[in-house]
């Protein structure tokens, strides 16, 4: 739900302000790659209606955001292209290599799924770099990143809960480790987010 909220906040910002200032297209494209490689089982592995609907929402909304940033006349003009310089392959290639080395089963679907877990852990980095370069971070962008980070942090609690409460719950070290790293990457952002919130000041990250 926090993940869904983050997407709603981002779409709200882009749609109402007709601006994507401070939003990293690189991160959005990495997320698109994350969802495509993770949800390849969309039609073959039915978990629940909730699960299927959320997968479709995550996939379509991410491509919708990319379309807005690349294709919408007004939104496209507000994109900080010169500042959003992080290179995709710098994250994609190491994650691919790691997925080929550390996985639970050497099949195409499993390796791609593992790749998506690793890539998700670091997909926020271009956004954080852009944020550091952005002087005026608007509330919606700040809250968007907060929700995106909080969702994985909440997963950590959920994993602990499931580990102790569910009888047939399997340990999933790859997901746990990647989730911990993903949350740790946000630690700095969370710190400044709460600090600005407490002081009732506009969010800004030190250079």
């Amino acid at each position: 739900m926090t993940h869904l909220a983050s997407i709603c906040l981002l779409l709200l910002k882009i749609h109402t302000m007709k601006s994507c200032a401070g939003v990293s297209l690189k991160t959005q494209e990495l997320y698109a790659l994350v969802f495509v490689t993770r949800y390849l089982d969309l039609f073959s592995n039915f978990v629940s209606m909730y699960n299927t609907i959320m997968k479709i929402i995550f996939l379509s909304s991410t491509f919708g955001i990319i379309w807005y940033m690349r294709g919408h006349k007004l939104v496209r003009q507000s994109y900080d292209k010169e500042q959003d310089t992080f290179r995709h392959y710098f994250l994609v290639i190491p994650c691919m290599v790691l997925a080929l080395v550390i996985h639970s089963k050497f099949t195409l679907l499993e390796v791609l799924w593992t790749f998506s877990i690793y890539l998700e852990a670091v997909a926020i980095l271009p956004q954080l770099v852009l944020l550091q370069r952005t002087r005026n971070i608007d509330n919606l962008t700040g809250n968007y990143i907060f929700c995106l980070g909080a969702y994985r942090a909440l997963y950590l609690l959920n994993w602990i809960y499931r580990y102790f409460m569910e009888k047939n719950y399997h340990a999933q070290w790859i997901t746990w480790m990647a989730g911990m790293i993903q949350t740790a990457i946000y630690a700095d952002f969370f710190y400044y987010y709460f600090k600005s919130w407490k002081k009732n000041e506009r969010l800004k990250l030190p250079a």
């Binding site: 592995n45 978990v47 699960n51 959320m54 639970s104 799924w113 719950y169 399997h170 999933q172 997901t175």
Partner: peptide, 10 residues
């Protein structure tokens, strides 16, 4: 070998 992880999460 590691256990095949459950794919019930998003």
């Amino acid at each position: 070998t590691m256990q095949d992880p459950p794919k019930d999460e998003l």
